[in-house]
């Protein structure tokens, strides 16, 4: 690089660029926080079952096999829309019925959830399915 472009000029451009970009990210984040209430179904968080369901989701590491809104592991089906795909009764029966034990098939563990916990989980998955995701996934299969 030419000698008119000095190291200290390069450094100043770096610091300027970094600060500017971070401020831009903060501004867009600020705007995001303003818009989110219209999209994120936060009223449902007043329901203690939804909050409890999220904790059960986390404490059993469901994300270690499944995706939720497309993020997570890719070993098992998307669950962000499973409430719409399968409905509450199927979800509860499915979790209770694991593992299938079918030879060679991918297995889901038995988590020994109580009836109350199963209902909390369903409430959480219903909440997740109603978040405005800009029409993702492309179809019901997730």
């Amino acid at each position: 690089m030419s000698s008119t472009f000095t190291t200290s000029a390069a450094r100043n451009i770096f610091y300027g660029g970094a600060v500017f970009s971070f401020l831009l990210l903060l501004a867009l984040t600020f705007r995001t926080e303003q818009v989110l209430p219209q999209r994120d179904q936060r009223a449902q968080l007043d329901n203690p079952q939804v909050v409890a369901g999220k904790r059960i989701w986390e404490n059993n590491n469901c994300i270690g096999c499944h995706t939720l809104l497309g993020e997570g592991a890719y070993f098992a089906p998307e669950l962000g829309n499973v409430y719409k795909r399968r409905g509450p009764d199927f979800i509860k029966a499915w979790i209770k019925g694991q593992p299938t034990g079918a030879p060679g098939r991918r297995q889901m563990p038995q988590f020994n959830l109580t009836e109350q916990e199963l209902d909390d989980m369903v409430a959480f998955l219903k909440y997740a399915s109603e978040i405005n995701t800009a029409k993702w996934p492309p179809n019901i299969e997730g």
């Binding site: 867009l28 705007r31 989110l36 999209r39 809104l69 993020e71 405005n132 995701t133 993702w136």
Partner: peptide, 11 residues
């Protein structure tokens, strides 16, 4: 990463 997780669509 903000396209489909509920964040605003300007992302």
């Amino acid at each position: 990463h903000y396209f489909w997780i509920g964040a605003p669509e300007f992302w």
